[in-house]
Design a binder for these strands. Structure first.
Lengths: 412, 412
DNA sequence: ACTATTTGTTCAACCATTGAATTATTTGCG
DNA sequence: CGCAAATAATTCAATGGTTGAACAAATAGT
């Protein structure tokens, strides 16, 4: 999962090449212009001879391609730019959420090459049925990818709930799922992806975690450490530390929605009192703004709220200010604890961020001891509503970039 | 800082040996019985030939020694056990705290080989003077270490405050320090340690961080991820994630004392309201227990509190219960956020933990969503009051174990 | 005394990197 | 137009570290 390519065990001679493959490919991925072999040599510290050999492997494995030479001033033989291949391995991203299914394909360069969203209320649908529909969409995505010369090398599924290491969805309250064994339910269907050494066929993870990963790998790349908050019906956070998602001991990190902001306040369904979710959850904001709860689709409610706030509706503005203040109390605590300098508001919060950011910043300014020396940035997410699906697909291709040897072993 | 020996840049041929030196030495350090070369080969996946070569380097560099063969049943040539050398490099740990100075020396195996504590109220003492006294103690420690065949390879200084990357103590409120440039103040004195490639001569860090590191490397080794809370006048936390201390973007993580537990409550000197420190800080507990604040030394106050609680004093018990509840609210938030399964109460909290743990556990049980599936352990720290100094010294030797090539380059 | 067994070392083969020399391809200048 | 300078990329013998198999060492069991 980590971006650092740390050899876990023995370092044999082959590992040496493996590590340098990852190093060079990582540089190509991180560069904003197609680098030449000479650029890579100076950037990595390897000799040009080694870089050439490594690049030869990468070219043979169709992980990188040669681009038109970037125009350069001065004399000398022109460089040949290296770019991530637009054909070759790709990642499949899947998402089951309360009111839609989403499937997307992301290539090595991080480009979204296929994207489908199927709106439907998934709450009355049985998990097996929802997954079956997803498999259907995935099949179409696979065919579309193949048409574009892409091979699906792995898949990741985002769900709005707690997932354990084996892909068992312990609890997805807003979806009504409980102890859903996703891999077992998918076993009867045709495989979604190819088998690639080192890349798991399917990872199931929390939607907030994968949305945070999407933000981490978006262009331009975000900071190495930040907090990504998904404000849906529940409030989840993805915690990215030093360029890697921190999942917690059991993979259940990020339950920011149950940080206490008014310890003697409203009871919460978690059993505690005064949890953030009771003050800054989507339902709480909508209720505080006096909106009828009848208009159910979550994205509609958020859009309506933004409209009202834009129009200067006093109730909406007050509701957003209160929610932002509650959010700020919680975020200030997290920033104090983890010393982060960036907070990203994603999911349903993104369109509301013009009204949420100011009170959040105000709470940070008054509660964070170190804010005086180091400003904290609070900004909306750059990815859209389907950030989780894109992040899921991106997490697959990042694994290949981080350890290309597995892919090369397969195709050669 | 990380335990994973990830090559940052190019992986050259020499790195290969460097990595395997670290791998083998790490195994020797982690083993609970002196392993043979054959054990190491199976454990690491290297061949016996390679392990022999690597061990030869380690023996020549005096990082490991051969122990008496561990008695083993069955036939075969007896193995020669390998242990971390009890002579060779050692770490120097320093601590400036409100009411004492501490210096200690820890060897490769983690044994404390020298330990001095000088009690004195440091608040009226100028930083330069305090550091001068520390240098004096360090000189004695160095001489003592030399007598035992130890070479000080690096030093770490623990201070109760915020430290930036360059060793500047931005703020140590309870010590009265502000913007104290520790490395500059130490420049006039004789060097505390040898120069070893890859090991910084002096690291200055927060006391809570280093105490957490001490706990991480104590025997038996603690879990890979936990929260270590130092309850002194202020409340600091060291956050250990996946076997590495998480310092935050600027090194200022762990300010748990300012998590809000009663957002509309007592004003705090940080500018916020209802911070944990106002309810579970040492002064708050002492005041709530009705103890005269005159008995100033912090450890005395804590000891007195424990005495009273032991004797069944109602005020003391109530004060501890309230403090534990406030602490539990904050800890529950952290556990929700980071999904940790272990919380260690250290510093002044350690002797009070019999009375603090129950309310902390109660709050966790009622506020942590995932507590039903995965119990959270709350326990006192195993290291004593000078955990920070021991952790500081330990952090130095861990660097050598994690990258032995630097030490070997020096000595031969 | 002999065999089975396990440990540790030796040595030729192998693999990836290295560094210098070589080839390739352009710009700049007379 | 032709040549020198400059930069990019490849070739190749040398090097350093790991490998695997064979071998030496040392013990327990029979």
């Amino acid at each position: 999962m980590s971006l650092t390519n740390a050899p876990a065990g023995a370092v044999r001679q082959g590992s040496l090449r493996e590590l340098n493959l990852a190093l060079v490919l990582g540089r190509i991925a991180a560069a904003d212009r197609p680098p030449s072999r000479a650029d890579l040599a100076t950037a990595t510290g390897l000799t040009r001879a080694t870089v050439s050999a490594v690049v030869e492997d990468l070219l043979a494995g169709r992980l990188v391609g040669e681009a038109d030479p970037a125009p350069r001033a001065g004399a000398g033989r022109p460089a040949r730019g290296l770019v991530l291949a637009d054909q070759g391995p790709a990642g499949l991203g899947l998402e089951v959420n309360v009111d839609y299914l989403a499937v997307c394909v992301v290539d090595l360069a991080g480009q979204v090459r296929h994207h489908t969203v199927q709106r439907a209320d998934l709450r009355p649908v049985a998990p097996a049925e929802a997954l079956a529909r997803l498999v259907e969409l995935a099949g179409q995505a696979r065919a579309d990818a193949a048409r574009q010369g892409l091979t699906l090398a792995g898949a990741a599924l985002a769900v709005p709930g707690l997932v354990d290491g084996a892909g068992l969805v312990r609890l997805a309250p807003n979806l009504g799922w409980r102890d859903v064994p996703v891999p077992a339910l998918l076993a009867g269907h045709p495989p979604l992806t190819e088998q690639v050494p080192g890349v798991p066929a399917l990872v199931v993870d929390n939607e907030a975690n994968l949305a945070a990963l999407g933000e981490l790998h978006s262009r331009p790349p975000g900071p190495a450490s930040f907090l990504h908050i998904s404000g849906e019906v529940g409030i989840g956070a993805g915690i990215v530390l030093d360029g890697a998602l921190f999942r917690g001991v059991r993979g259940w990190s990020g339950e920011i929605g149950h940080l206490p902001v008014h310890p003697e306040g409203r009871p919460c369904r978690c059993g505690g009192q005064g949890c953030l979710e009771q003050y800054a959850g989507q339902e709480a904001i909508v209720a505080a703004a006096g909106l009828a709860r009848a208009e159910l689709p979550a994205d509609t409610a958020t859009a309506r709220l933004a409209e009202l706030a834009e129009a200067g509706d006093a109730d909406a503005l007050r509701a957003l200010h209160e929610a932002g203040t509650a959010l700020g109390v919680a975020v200030a605590g997290v920033v104090n604890l983890l010393d982060l300098d960036t907070v990203v508001l994603g999911g349903g919060y993104a369109p509301l961020s013009p009204w949420l950011c100011p009170p959040v910043l105000a709470e940070i300014a008054s509660r964070v001891l170190t804010a005086a020396w180091s400003p904290v940035t609070v900004r909306p997410a750059t990815l859209g509503a389907e950030a989780a699906a894109v992040g899921a697909a991106g997490s697959v291709v990042r694994q290949i970039v981080a350890r290309p040897a597995g892919w090369l072993a397969r195709s050669g």
